[in-house]
């Protein structure tokens, strides 16, 4: 899908909040200078093309008490990456599982983001993943300070 200037303006606007008025799409359409019907057609097109994953209501993080998180990095033999990655993905404590490149001073190739109520939960989850996969070499990297956490703003003028 080729994104023209108009699309970029629409997408930039749709990353913001829908105005809380009876006809919110008409309001956004006016802002970007098209008709409501054109805007709704555009939105359906973005959804069909997969450019937009969904148009929805985004809630705040509300899983009360689940405040501990860590990046857990695993040293997995290349021939076992596929299988180990699949097993790691089944753990509900792991929100993201990725394979990433290695370096002489960074040998860990699989990454899992772990979430729990306490640090102990994370140690336990990592130990369980280790037991299930047979991967014994791993590091839990806790974040000790947050400098930035935001959503990407695409095509922001």
């Amino acid at each position: 899908m080729t994104l023209r200037e108009l699309d970029k303006r629409i997408i930039a606007r749709l990353q913001g909040d829908l105005p809380l008025v009876p006809e919110p799409f008409a309001a956004i359409a006016r802002e970007v200078g098209i008709s409501e019907e054109e805007l709704l057609t555009k939105i359906r097109g973005y959804l069909e093309a997969g450019v937009m994953r969904r148009f929805s209501t985004i809630l705040r993080h509300h899983r009360a008490g689940y405040t501990a998180n860590a990046m857990c990095c695993w040293l997995v033999p290349p021939e076992r990456v596929e299988e180990a990655g699949r097993v790691m993905a089944t753990f509900r404590e792991a929100s993201h599982v990725y394979q990433r490149p290695t370096y002489p001073d960074w040998p860990y190739n699989l990454f899992t983001m772990l979430h729990g109520k306490t640090k102990e939960d994370l140690y336990r989850a990592a130990a369980e993943i280790s037991a299930r996969t047979g991967i014994g070499e791993y590091r839990l990297l806790f974040s000790t300070e947050e400098f930035k956490k935001t959503s990407m703003e695409y095509f922001k003028q």
Partner: peptide, 12 residues
């Protein structure tokens, strides 16, 4: 938090 679009960064 908001009502709006969630985009695929790769497809953008």
């Amino acid at each position: 938090r908001r009502i709006g679009g969630i985009f695929d960064s790769g497809k953008l």
